[in-house]
Amino acid sequence: MHVRVTLVTAPLGTSRLAERFADDRPLDQAAWHAVQLASHALVPLSAADLRYCSPTHRSRATGDALGFAPLVQPALSDWDMGGWRGLTLGEVAAHDPRAVDAWLRDPRAAPHGGESLLDLVTRVGGWLDTRPFEDGGALVAVAEPAVVRALLVYALKAPPATYWNVDPGPLSAATVTGHPGRWSLRMEAPR
């Protein structure tokens, strides 16, 4: 069995430094404009057999704007940041630098009281491996950057620390091909 899974990163609408943990705001005007500009390249993905999205407002709105008519998947929820929800990394680091250091260094650490990095990777990896794939099928999912990163780490069987080196830009598309337990990253020339 060989399938194709394309992950589209939802647009943020704010700079990464101003981004707040688990910020579930709707798309702002800049993000809507970005979706319109990228639509020519992304709309063809709506032909996928299965179309999903994260439950976040911006993931659902992005999937709808691209014509995916995606099914919301709770397993694609953004990283549960517990007590850090709504704060920026800078705010948390100013208040508790040791907690941030532990979080960045240890994939099992969850000083915020939410999910650890390992929990996130396991959750989204379990979702990927349990999709109802048919041989030759295609799937597209719109999700938050944290979910896309975690899914790529899982699919490539990379060490969890690799998560911090994966940088999916807004409205980028990453494709893995293969089958549960054996995935390969596929990179294609723009069309």
Score class of each variant (00 low, 15 high):
L104F: 09
S59L: 04
H112R: 08
W103K: 06
G83A: 14
E115S: 02
G86F: 13
W103C: 03
G86C: 12
R123C: 06
V100W: 10
L89S: 10
P74A: 11
W127F: 14
L89K: 06
P55R: 13
A99P: 04
T122G: 11
D49E: 13
P111C: 02
D96G: 06
G114R: 07
A69M: 12
L120W: 04
A47N: 12
V124Q: 10
V100D: 02
S59V: 07
D101M: 15
R131K: 04
G126Y: 11
L71S: 13
V121Y: 05
D78L: 12
D129Y: 14
W79C: 02
R108C: 10
P107N: 01
L104R: 02
P97C: 13
H112V: 01
G63P: 08
V92R: 03
S54K: 06
L120V: 08
A109H: 03
R123M: 03
A65E: 12
D96Q: 15
D80Q: 04
R60L: 15
A69F: 15
A94H: 11
G67M: 14
V72R: 10
G63T: 07
D49H: 13
A109Y: 03
D49Q: 15
L120H: 02
A102E: 00
D106F: 04
S77M: 10
R105C: 03
M81H: 02
L76M: 13
R105T: 05
W127Q: 08
E115P: 00
A94D: 13
G90D: 14
T56F: 05
D80W: 05
A94T: 10
D101E: 15
S59W: 08
R108F: 11
A69Q: 11
M81C: 09
W103F: 00
A110N: 00
P55K: 14
G90V: 00
S59T: 07
